[in-house]
Computed example of a mutant assay.
Amino acid sequence: MSTDFQQARVALGARLRELRAGITGRDLAERLGWPQSKVSKLETGRQTATAADLTAWAEATGHPDVADELTARLRVLESGARSWRRRLAAGHRPVQDSLTVEYQRSYRMRAWQPAMVVGMLQTPEYARAVFSRYVDLQQSVRDIDDAVRARMRRQEELYDPSRHFDIVLWEAALHAMVCPPDVLAGQLDRLCGVVGMTNVRLGILPFGAQLRIPPANGFWMYDERLVIVEDWHAELWLDDAENVALYTRLWDTVTGPAVYGAQAHRLIARARAQLDLS
């Protein structure tokens, strides 16, 4: 969990504790019908409140007028870290739709992905395999077909000449068996075709490259206004100038040794040839 996110959650908890002045934690829990431990966790920043929690807290402490203030604090907090538990409450399809909005607002997009093929270049079969694994991990709504269709529709942006995509994969992504071998073969064939696209610059960071920094989480940069980083527990949406500048430097550092064009094509073809399709 990011330090900024945790600090914001602790600050929100302190505000909740301030509003509770004159009421014991046990009494407030009884008024709300909550376990007393929930009151304690919210006040100490060990649990993230929902908007409904905050409205109920404001009313139960006799401060209904501060409900809007509290929910505004929550929006600011969640703009930095958006937990998968909440993001996936209605399934993967709404998450895909929200990302499509960001693509449509942007003209230059940069992506680094060390572990798998980025969603923007996935085949339907590969995307279905990936979504299936994340549904199992997060125990979320199983709307895989809808999510795949939404992802495929977003790929129409690849053919808009006003947009440019810089995408770099670590070579490991070409070999990761997150799907059956025949599906991976189709995915690698798709990548070979992407190499020649006019507004997509696909690079591969070879295994043997001298790394300037250890490969870590994948991220997308949308123009110079937004960075989205995926972690296991949450997406980080970073739009402050300091973090955007950091990820710009990170992009230059991590992707510097990548190869493109014919060299990238050879690495993809080599991975394809190594698949056992028997």
Rank of each mutant, 00 (worst) to 15 (best):
Q122F: 06
T123M: 07
T123Y: 01
E125M: 11
E125V: 05
E125Q: 14
Y126I: 08
F131D: 02
R133K: 10
D136C: 03
D136G: 09
L137S: 10
Q138P: 02
Q139F: 00
D143W: 03
D143I: 08
I144T: 12
D146A: 15
A147D: 02
V148N: 12
R149G: 11
A150I: 00
A150D: 05
R151L: 12
R153W: 05
Q155L: 08
E156G: 01
E157T: 15
E157D: 13
Y159W: 06
D160A: 11
D160K: 09
D160M: 12
P161I: 04
P161W: 01
P161N: 09
S162Y: 02
S162P: 04
R163E: 01
D166Y: 13
V168S: 08
L169T: 01
L169E: 05
E171I: 02
A172R: 14
A172F: 11
A173H: 05
A173G: 12
H175D: 14
H175P: 00
M177Y: 03
M177D: 12
P180W: 08
P181H: 01
P181Y: 07
P181F: 10
P181V: 06
P181G: 03
D182K: 13
V183Q: 06
A185I: 02
G186N: 11
D189K: 13
R190W: 01
R190L: 08
L191E: 10
C192I: 13
G196T: 13
N199L: 05
V200C: 01
R201P: 03
R201M: 07
L202A: 10
L202R: 02
G203F: 02
I204K: 10
I204T: 12
P206Y: 09
G208W: 03
G208P: 08
A209Y: 00
A209P: 05
A209G: 03
Q210G: 07
Q210Y: 01
R212P: 00
I213M: 12
I213G: 04
P214N: 09
G218L: 00
F219G: 06
F219Y: 15
W220Y: 14
W220N: 10
Y222R: 08
R225H: 11
L226K: 08
V227I: 15
V229P: 02
E230C: 01
E230K: 01
A234H: 11
A234W: 00
E235H: 14
L236R: 04
W237V: 10
